[in-house]
Design a protein around this nucleic acid. Structure first.
Lengths: 234, 234
DNA sequence: ACCTGAACACCGTTCAAGT
DNA sequence: ACCTGAACACCGTTCAAGT
């Protein structure tokens, strides 16, 4: 007949559910976000959530939009390359704050409205920077998930990597994977000497990003078009 | 006291389990590969699988290695760029044959021996092509999962996309996402006119790959080093 | 000693029973 | 009419009971 005190004081809403879900994922990883655990965190029965969100897919989409909304708006008065670079690095910051986000976005099959809006804005930056519609289209594909700050590494090194343990592993694999060991040994050496960037995630991300952006700028200057060239990037 | 006829005729083995699991995933998607369904497909009780594979993680690792083993060996007598390009396109072919593979690889946290061997071989190709150890290291990061043929698109377009339906969607979103609609409309137009590549996955993949490889070749020629430059890719 | 069926601890979601 | 607890159909894996 009457709602419980807890519910009246703090009524459920899509916003509160989403906020709690994001906090839960930030703290305990995405696996700790189940409809059951989320309901428990909110002090309600699991089925109560279904009054505010249709299903778990909608919950995940909402969580993505929370992260995407943390991306800074585009800066004004900058050349296209600087502006795009800044925005992508901002997206990367947002993504790094929520370690679960990239995995969740990858698992989705259709983009959320916030992601579409972000992509639309990014396309606008490219077009107003002087890129043709044709080039812009291919550039969006070439940047791909990197637009949202994805590092696109094959294996993200697990957080708990003891340097001494890693060095031992490198020595052990030098027989089986000689080339890999050679590169890994060099990175170790660099880190010890503090001479240059050994294996800094941020450096690697910017290295790849700049490689692409510089190549794209060259195509823009050359008025490259997919219609007029046999090769993609001569 | 005696094994069943089925089991005696076709005894379980890690190889047979893996082969069946890959076939099952190829046919019905990765979700149809559960220990229970896999056992059913093999005509055994679920627990029988655990005699040959430790757990589901080991099964997934084994499935990955099956796909990776389908990648062609490196071609001989080619310059590094052509050789690397060919090999990555071969990896992409293997990956496209098994639509579940990229998702499964992404979900793993540690690389399998076959993946390590492939990466080791790829590093060897770069080093013997004249790239420094330093540059090779950053190049491996920059290529990232693209080395295995990942397209790194933000959203892989679902297989069932009706062109007419897509055109309607583009017109509908032109108000909310004007820039996106502009690019999408251009792609539609191109496809109709058969003038150039509208949105061919293979073209987009090669476009991005060549953008990176050409940029890398330029760095090699310039003897670029992460120690001697402030900017990653000047 | 060995194999295996039942059981455990989960999951997202449905549905009918109770107020 | 509405809310919700039990139930359904799964999942990977454990474990003890039976042969």
């Amino acid at each position: 007949m009457e709602q419980t005190e807890g519910a009246r004081r703090n009524p459920l809403s899509p916003g509160r559910i989403l906020h709690t879900a994001v906090a839960l994922a930030d703290e305990g990883g995405i696996d700790s976000v189940s409809m059951r655990k989320l309901a428990q965190e909110l002090g309600v029965v699991p089925m109560a959530l279904y009054k505010h969100i249709a299903n778990k897919d909608e919950l995940l989409d909402g969580m993505i939009d929370v992260v995407v909304s943390e991306i800074d708006p585009p800066g004004a008065g900058l050349d296209w390359k600087t502006a795009v670079r800044q925005r992508i690095l901002s997206a990367r910051r947002a993504l790094l704050c929520h370690t679960w986000a990239s995995r969740v976005i990858e698992s989705r099959t259709t983009p959320t409205p916030a992601v579409l809006a972000y992509m639309d804005s990014m396309i606008g930056m490219l077009l107003s920077g002087g890129l043709s519609v044709d080039l812009t289209h291919h550039v969006m594909h070439a940047l791909g998930s990197r637009i949202l700050g994805f590092s696109q590494e094959l294996f993200t090194p697990s957080a708990s990597v003891d340097p001494r343990e890693a060095a031992t592993a490198v020595r052990a694999m030098s027989g089986t994977y000689p080339h890999l060991a050679k590169v890994a040994a060099r990175v170790d050496h660099d880190e010890g000497a503090v001479v240059g960037p050994g294996c800094d995630d941020q450096f690697e991300f910017e290295f790849a990003l700049d490689l692409l952006l510089d190549g794209i700028e060259a195509l823009r200057v050359r008025r490259w078009s997919s219609h007029s060239s046999q090769q993609a990037a001569p």
